[in-house]
Design a protein around this nucleic acid. Structure first.
Lengths: 344, 344
DNA sequence: GTCGTTTACTAAATCGGTTGAGTAAAAAAT
DNA sequence: ATTTTTTACTCAACCGATTTAGTAAACGAC
């Protein structure tokens, strides 16, 4: 491992003290313009970079953000991540990224590692395991250290911090209303997310939309899936045992897979059955028919959350005690071919 | 920002020296068993964690790996990333991750930041901009610092380091051969990757397969796409002006989009036209007909690359000068409905 | 009882920066 | 010409760990 150039080396070269070099490079007006120029030039041409560990040991400003994402293979989270990366990069922050794999244990472990000064802020979307367990001690303890947290998408009221979420209730409300307006009367909902708060919010939006339109919810049409293996059987049962003319899938795969199953049962889409899914990734645009989807604007969520966090990090220094905020972003319904036209 | 507990605090509490505490926690046999037990217990219950910056300043072992990926929205890279994360995590390494966004400038910038001791190893897949420019100075300089690099998927011979790649030549060779064996005679290739070495390798595999089967390549059937906007026009031209009964798409989207265009032109898949795509993500399984694909085993690539890197990092200390290796992984052809059966 | 070993600890240097206090010389003010 | 201020540096402490060298006290051997 080749040793890289340090302040000491530069100091030796110019026969000045280390502090002179440090100040020169930090453009202190303690140092003469001529010397500053020489030192900077020498540093540049010798490719000097301050050792980040040494610098952070002294200053508490490490320009690093921790990111904890439940699953990077999920396109929505990949979108969020790309938004995070963009804003972090624009502001000169590095990212330490971890995947919790939907597990509380892994999330805890990760947080513990980051806790000790590795990062000056944390962006996190809760793992399913965490929401299910209701154990948020690791996050509270993290926040107690004074390191700001911004939660996105999957959040909890039980931790005091900034949050960036989408309006899940309203997204589901609008989607369900759209189904009703295009003539659906027996609308089912398929939720593999009932362990998550976002899943519960979406379910509420669905129920409220039914109610507002004078439709009474049918428990047989509310399918909660807790194990992926049961998906096909449950949806098949739903479609064969009940009269269903609309389905709201609470994420990409429930909508798509439900559509495939329905088609294999002879349903015509959207004539016999309309389908709307949450999460507007690549898949809904490529299957046929293309699926009407609730777009969550993943990249934008990532950008907003990161902006908020950086602002919080930089304000933290000045000890301004701004109230925690929750930014609720609008979803938008992207209408495609799996639903009927409005003027039916 | 609450100050967290340090060695000094523990030392004060037991009225011993800082070095005693440090040694106790590191289980040195310099310290009596009784005292070690007491100190460890106290540290644990007070949730002591060594400051990573202080520790790294002294020891050069920082258990952090830099990851540079061209684009996280690409499912293949997301798969690789999940493999990287898994192995890194298993070995107690953190990940600092950056997205180069296919740009040489951003890649250079990233490398420069990581160069100064932030990471003890680097995993990188070259950005398109980098391969196009042929400028690898930033990577050579990085390697000169003695920090090991493992390149994956998109690599170059011009930087001496370990590499993990797939056998692109053979993947294309087998796919093309499969098309031929299932009766295709006029096989086109669609390459949006001709700026990349992997694209060139795949093209060679295609050409060799044609040759070995006594088919002479037709330049009109070799479509190189350099701007996404031109895709539709070029493929439409290909399919209307030529006789084509097979298409090899060099990544997911060329195969899928070409199939959509062909279908809109009245082609029956696979009767009139067989299609094989590289990259086996979610899309090829969800479109209809489902697309026969060359699987690149992204997660496995990530795992292998990370294993190699960690091994290199840990051996580096012992100064063993192992030769650089290139691990070439087999692809596998996942046969679906966009190709005809073998016994035609 | 003296000398050599262990045992169990401490002192102090070190990693590579940052920073406030201190200082000599030059410049400005009176 | 003397005092004050400014300029341009240096000193040294500090961040929080690790680690080498050193040292008292206890122990064992002959």
């Amino acid at each position: 491992m080749k040793r890289s150039i340090t302040l000491k080396d530069i100091a030796l070269h110019f026969n000045v003290s280390i502090s002179t070099v440090s100040k020169a490079l930090n453009d202190s007006h303690d140092i003469s313009i001529a010397l500053k120029a020489k030192i900077k030039e020498y540093a540049r041409s010798n490719n000097y970079r301050p050792n980040p560990y040494a610098r952070n040991l002294r200053k508490k400003d490490n320009r690093t953000i921790g990111v904890v994402i439940p699953n990077i293979l999920n396109y929505f989270f990949a979108q969020v991540f790309s938004g995070i990366e963009k804003v972090a990069n624009e502001n000169g922050y590095n990212l330490i990224s971890c995947i919790s794999n939907e597990s509380l244990a892994k999330e805890k472990n990760t947080i513990e590692i980051l806790e000790r000064g590795l990062v000056s802020g944390l962006l996190i979307s809760l793992s399913e395991g965490t929401e299910k367990s209701g154990d948020y001690e690791h996050l509270k303890s993290f926040a107690d250290n004074g390191i700001p947290i911004v939660m996105f998408d999957r959040v909890t009221d039980l931790v005091a911090c900034d949050k960036v979420i989408i309006d899940d209730f309203n997204g589901a409300f609008e989607a369900t209303t759209h189904l009703i307006r295009t003539g659906c009367k027996n609308i089912a909902i398929i939720s593999p997310l009932d362990n998550l708060n976002i899943g519960k919010q979406r379910l509420k939006g669905y129920l409220t939309a039914l109610e507002k339109n004078g439709l009474s919810p049918n428990p047989n049409l509310i399918i909660k899936i807790f194990e992926e293996e049961l998906f096909e059987a449950e949806v098949r049962a739903l479609l064969t045992r009940n009269r269903v003319d609309g389905i709201l899938g609470l994420e990409e795969f429930s909508a798509i897979n439900a559509m495939k199953i329905a088609m294999s049962l002879g349903y015509e889409i959207p004539e016999d059955l309309s389908i709307i899914g949450f999460t507007n990734g690549q898949l809904p645009q490529y299957v046929s028919p293309r699926i009407t989807s609730v777009s969550q604007h993943g990249k934008f969520i990532g950008e907003q959350a990161t902006h908020k966090l950086i602002q919080r990090i930089e304000n933290n220094k000045e000890d301004s005690m701004e109230e925690f905020s929750t930014q609720k972003l609008k979803t938008s319904l992207v209408i495609r071919e799996s639903t009927k036209p409005l003027n039916f």
